[in-house]
């Protein structure tokens, strides 16, 4: 169809990296978001203020700046930590900050803040009587969360999660700027080498639309799953 001038395999690898990065970051963001949302609705003032400061900071700073700070700063921070340990233990360690891991952590930390807002709203939307019944029947907090709060909350959280996911997916393109070879990076390299921007940039754009379309299917399935008991109301 297209002649990718030998860049075809690398583009595919880039697309795979984009998908992997996006899904892993999504998982990280969901976990962080749930924890931060729980912290925000906890009774401890310390937890609450830490969580609030975290989300305010993240939402005030561009993704790219955050990413550069964590990626470039992460290496130096790690060096300082290992230097300190080396001096103390007399060893000679060096830990290389992996660009992919840094990308997952950064996107997870950023979108965890947005997810926490989604989850907090969804927690509040669950009727208090549902959790009360769970407690009244002797469920432990974890069991009540797993069996009652989580499935009920997801119905309200799903649209927000979907929104954040779509923004996150597009944000993965930023990792190309810090040198990770996702599909945008490959397209950028190929464009510089061949001077054919449209040949590479347009298919990559389509790649994002394709990932979005697939995720749309997953979301529809999940929506049906979490609507159980609500949509069938007579």
């Amino acid at each position: 169809m297209f002649d990718f001038q030998g860049y075809g395999p690398r583009l595919l690898e880039g697309a795979w990296l984009t998908a992997e990065l996006a899904v892993l970051s999504l998982i990280a963001a969901l976990v962080i978001g749930l924890m931060v949302a729980s912290a925000k609705s906890s009774r401890s003032m310390t937890l609450k203020s830490v969580a609030t400061v975290y989300t305010t900071l993240i939402r005030g700073v561009p993704d790219l700046v955050m990413m550069m700070l964590l990626f470039y700063g992460g290496q130096i921070g790690m060096n300082m930590a290992t230097d300190g340990l080396n001096a103390w233990l007399g060893t000679d360690m060096f830990i290389n900050v992996n660009a992919f891991a840094a990308g997952v952590v950064t996107l997870g930390v950023i979108y965890g803040a947005y997810m926490s807002e989604t989850f907090r709203g969804a927690f509040l939307a669950v009727d208090a009587g549902q959790m009360e019944a769970a407690r009244a029947y002797g469920m432990s907090p974890w069991l009540a969360f797993r069996r009652v709060r989580f499935p009920l909350m997801m119905r309200h959280a799903l649209p927000g999660i979907n929104n954040n996911w779509l923004v996150l997916l597009k944000s993965t393109a930023l990792v190309s700027i810090i040198g990770l070879s996702d599909m945008v990076y490959v397209a950028d390299q190929a464009t510089k080498a061949t001077h054919q921007p449209f040949l590479f940039m347009l298919p990559v754009g389509l790649g994002y639309l394709a990932i979005t379309a697939v995720s749309e299917l997953v979301v529809t399935g999940l929506k049906r799953r979490f609507d159980v008991g609500f949509s069938q109301a007579t």
């Binding site: 700027i177 945008v184 464009t191 940039m201 754009g205």
Partner: peptide, 22 residues
């Protein structure tokens, strides 16, 4: 709207930047 909201701004920027230059 679908295309501009469905793809990363970075791609759009690269297309505008390289697309004309070449």
């Amino acid at each position: 709207n679908y295309v501009f909201r469905g793809t990363p701004l970075l791609i759009q920027l690269y297309i505008a930047y390289y697309g004309f230059a070449f």
